[in-house]
Amino acid sequence: MQIKEVIVVEGKDDTAKIKQAVEADTIETNGSAINKQILTQIKHAQELRGVIVFTDPDYPGQRIRSIVDQHVPGCKHAFLKKSDARDKLNRGIGIEHASKEAIQLALKSVYELRKAHVSDITKEDLMRYGLVGGAHAKEKREALTSYLKIGYANGKQLLKRLTMFHITKVQLEQAMKQIQKEKWDV
């Protein structure tokens, strides 16, 4: 699998793991030490080839993703579930611990989600499904974002994340039906 965009990762171990899974070029942020020079490099890559931000599914990874998003609009995003990014001893979380298959699936999902139509989901839809402001809302959001492979989002971020990935009302409904079968009465 060859990726035309440049993939933004946190460090050299992530780059090594990505290169085992796909043919791609990367830019490393050096973890949370992301600076203006790296942001300029990412912006240039976005203008020339496009960028996929692929950071660890933890707080520092989300922070880096947010910084890149603020400074370089229009980037695509790939996400791993925490369970797919844990080391064997369950002590560390990171792309460097993920399987080749999990990385390929996360990157493939970037393209599949981009094919969807523009999102028509409203805040009322999120409330109706109990994704915000209800009992077990956090658990339902975790299940939904994991199912859609769009990375965890809190109640305030969820609508923006669904819109960013062009998730439609129909896709939301299908996902919630599947989640209902697996876990909850929605």
Score class of each variant (00 low, 15 high):
K4V: 00
E5S: 00
E5T: 02
V8Y: 06
E10K: 11
G11C: 10
K12G: 01
D14T: 08
K19A: 13
V22R: 10
I34Q: 03
N35H: 03
K43C: 00
Q46K: 14
V51C: 05
I52F: 03
I52H: 04
T55G: 06
T55N: 10
P57W: 04
P60M: 08
I64K: 08
S66C: 00
V68N: 08
H71Q: 13
C75N: 09
K76S: 11
H77V: 12
K81F: 04
K82N: 09
S83F: 06
S83I: 11
D84F: 02
R86H: 10
D87E: 09
K88E: 12
N90Q: 14
R91W: 12
G92K: 15
I93T: 14
I95K: 06
S99Y: 04
E101R: 11
L105F: 04
K108W: 00
S109V: 00
V110Q: 05
V110W: 01
E112R: 10
L113S: 10
R114D: 15
H117G: 15
H117S: 15
S119V: 08
K123T: 13
R128K: 12
Y129I: 02
Y129P: 02
G130I: 06
V132H: 09
H136T: 03
R141M: 07
L144F: 07
L144V: 07
K149P: 00
G151C: 07
G151F: 05
Y152L: 11
G155E: 15
Q157D: 14
L159W: 05
R161D: 05
L162W: 06
I167N: 02
K169N: 06
Q171E: 12
L172R: 04
E173F: 00
A175E: 03
K177Q: 14
K183F: 07
